[in-house]
């Protein structure tokens, strides 16, 4: 078998995994933003399904959004009078976190999908230097703390706070809601000012970043990713490395979009459960586990 042909054969499981994941990501984005009329009418959905928070970053001002954004909802409740924290949203996030961990980032988050698609644009790709990368990853935890703290602590004379993350940073809101509404709604367009351009600049940086490197927003800025990362080590859905099968070839680490040092520690807070490592492992050392059991362990039982 020629080397080139062998490479093609080896690439098949990875391509298959990527295709399945892309289909699930597209389906999730379509379901979460299934209010097609909103895009045509330039309005947002006003039905009761918005009582529920979706478990991913999906702006509730997106014309198609059928549910509420958990980060927006957390801040909306905290910035109102009388409540410092939304137990409702926290409960939803904890339950999804313990069930799936960052699988939600890898398979279901529309903003993750957007970054994945942007990264497919051909051109030179970069790896962030490991020192900056390692330190930068802590930033999302700082942002997570601020998401909880700022709307509740920094309040005006009436006790009302500001949803700081949504207002000054969230590129998902700018892309999914802002750009669309400003384009189709003349009234809103007339209100565009410095704040919009600040957010547009942040979005532009994230877009360029996502073209050049994999998932920069998820790595460094996403408070939801940080939250789910806290559950990744003990979530019911996870992955497992069979040390006895691993030959330390490093292929899994080469394909990992989050640059996880898989051979050292597989269930880190950074793993988005994309399954690429599992697909490239020829020794089948990496497996999916649900609860504490892998498929092989179940078969053995």
């Amino acid at each position: 078998m020629s080397g080139m042909h062998r490479d093609r054969v080896k690439a098949t499981p990875l391509k298959k995994q990527n295709r399945i994941r892309l289909l699930i990501q597209l389906a999730a984005a379509a379901v979460l933003n299934g209010y097609a009329a909103g895009f045509m009418k330039g309005k947002i959905f006003t039905g009761k399904t918005k009582l529920f928070c979706v478990p991913v970053l999906n702006c509730y001002s997106c014309p198609g959004a059928l549910g509420s954004c958990p980060i927006g909802a957390l801040q909306a409740v905290a910035s109102g009078t009388g409540r410092q924290i939304s137990f409702y949203v926290l409960g939803i996030l904890m339950l999804f976190g313990v069930l799936l961990g960052r699988f939600l980032c890898g398979f279901l988050c529309p903003f993750g999908l957007i970054q994945d698609l942007l990264h497919k644009i051909p051109g030179r790709k970069f790896k962030i230097p490991s020192g900056i990368d390692k330190t930068g990853r802590y930033l999302k935890y700082v942002i997570l703390v601020l998401v909880f703290l700022l709307p509740a602590v920094l309040v005006d004379g009436f006790g009302l706070g500001t949803p700081f993350f949504c207002k000054y940073f969230c590129p998902a809101g700018t892309l999914e809601g802002g750009v669309f509404h400003v384009l189709v709604n003349g009234q809103l367009r007339s209100l565009v000012g410095g704040l919009f351009w600040l957010k547009a600049a942040i979005l532009a940086i994230i877009i360029v970043g996502a073209i050049l490197t994999e998932r920069p927003f998820c790595r460094y800025f996403c408070p939801l990713g940080a939250f789910y990362g806290l559950f990744n080590r003990f979530s019911l859905y996870g992955i497992r490395m069979d040390e006895s099968r691993c030959i330390r070839c490093g292929k899994c680490e080469t394909v990992c979009p989050m640059d996880v040092k898989i051979t050292k520690k597989i269930n880190t807070a950074e793993c988005i459960r994309c399954g690429k490592c599992r697909a490239v492992c020829e020794k089948e050392a990496i497996s999916i586990r649900f609860m504490l059991k892998t498929k092989q362990e179940k078969e053995q039982l």
């Binding site: 001002s61 927006g72 207002k167 809101g173 919009f196």
Partner: peptide, 15 residues
């Protein structure tokens, strides 16, 4: 949350 989510969130969209 519903009250907030059924109106266009001006903060979210940068207005």
């Amino acid at each position: 949350i519903l009250f907030k989510a059924v109106k266009i969130c001006l903060e979210c969209i940068g207005i």
